[in-house]
Deep mutational scan, measured.
Amino acid sequence: KLPPGWEKRMSRSSGRVYYFNHITNASQWERPSGNSSSG
């Protein structure tokens, strides 16, 4: 399961899957890690 705020999306241009955070408006190709504590 993804960390809070993150969701899986697909890029229309490349067709690749990326991850988008609707809370911080951040996007990245790598899967966000939800196990590590923020610090």
Rank of each mutant, 00 (worst) to 15 (best):
R16I: 08
E30Q: 08
S37T: 12
S38Y: 06
S11W: 05
S27P: 03
L2D: 15
E30N: 06
P3R: 02
Y19I: 00
K8Y: 06
S38Q: 12
W29T: 07
P32W: 01
M10A: 07
Y19W: 07
K1V: 14
N35S: 11
G34Q: 10
E30H: 09
R31N: 09
R31F: 15
A26T: 14
P3Q: 03
G5R: 01
S27W: 15
R12K: 14
G5M: 04
M10Q: 10
N35M: 10
G39M: 11
N25M: 12
N25T: 06
P3E: 04
G5A: 04
S14R: 06
S14Q: 08
K8M: 15
R12M: 10
P3W: 02
R12T: 11
G39P: 13
L2Y: 03
L2Q: 02
Y19P: 03
S36E: 14
W6L: 00
A26Q: 15
R9T: 02
S11M: 10
L2P: 15
S14K: 07
R9A: 04
H22M: 11
R31A: 10
I23P: 01
S13N: 09
S11A: 10
V17G: 03
S11E: 13
N21M: 01
A26I: 14
W6H: 00
K1D: 15
S14G: 09
W29E: 06
R12V: 12
S38I: 12
L2H: 02
R16S: 06
R31P: 13
G34S: 12
S11D: 15
G39W: 05
P3V: 02
G15A: 04
K8H: 05
Y18Q: 01
Q28L: 03
L2N: 01
G39T: 11
V17I: 14
P32V: 01
E7V: 11
M10R: 14
S11K: 04
K1L: 13
S36Q: 10
T24E: 03
P32G: 01
Y19G: 00
E7C: 05
W29S: 07
S14F: 07
L2F: 03
I23W: 07
Y19T: 00
S13V: 12
G15Q: 07
S27M: 15
G15V: 03
G39Y: 04
R16G: 04
N25Y: 08
W6Y: 02
V17F: 10
G5S: 03
H22D: 05
S38G: 12
K8I: 15
N25L: 12
S13M: 08
S33P: 08
K8Q: 13
V17H: 09
T24H: 03
G15P: 02
S33Q: 11
W29D: 05
M10V: 15
S37Y: 07
M10D: 04
G5L: 02
P3Y: 02
R9K: 08
F20M: 01
H22T: 15
S11C: 15
Y19L: 00
N21H: 04
N25G: 15
R16Q: 09
I23R: 05
L2I: 06
Q28S: 07
S27G: 06
R12I: 12
T24P: 00
A26G: 07
L2G: 01
S27L: 15
F20H: 08
T24W: 03
S37L: 13
S27R: 15
N35Y: 07
P32Q: 01
S11T: 10
L2V: 06
N35F: 10
S27C: 15
E30I: 04
R31E: 12
G15R: 06
E30D: 08
F20S: 01
N25W: 05
W6N: 00
Y18W: 07
Q28H: 03
F20I: 05
G39L: 12
Y19A: 00
T24F: 04
S14D: 11
K8A: 13
S37E: 12
A26Y: 06
E7F: 05
G15S: 05
K1S: 14
S13K: 14
R9V: 06
G5P: 08
S33I: 11
P32M: 01
K8R: 13
Q28I: 03
S37C: 15
S13E: 11
L2A: 02
R12E: 10
N25S: 08
S13D: 10
I23N: 08
V17S: 07
V17T: 09
G15M: 05
E7M: 06
S13P: 09
P3T: 02
S37I: 12
P32F: 01
S27F: 15
M10F: 15
S36F: 08
Y18I: 04
G39C: 13
L2W: 03
P32Y: 00
N21V: 01
P4D: 09
G34R: 09
F20P: 03
S33F: 09
G34P: 11
K8V: 15
M10G: 03
H22N: 12
K8N: 02
E30S: 04
M10T: 15
P32A: 01
N21P: 00
N35R: 08
K1A: 13
P4G: 05
H22S: 13
S11P: 02
Y19D: 01
P32K: 00
R9H: 07
F20R: 02
P32H: 01
E30A: 06
R9M: 06
I23T: 07
A26D: 09
Y19F: 07
P3L: 03
T24Q: 03
R12N: 10
Q28V: 03
A26R: 14
G39K: 10
I23A: 07
G15Y: 02
T24D: 05
W6G: 00
S36P: 12
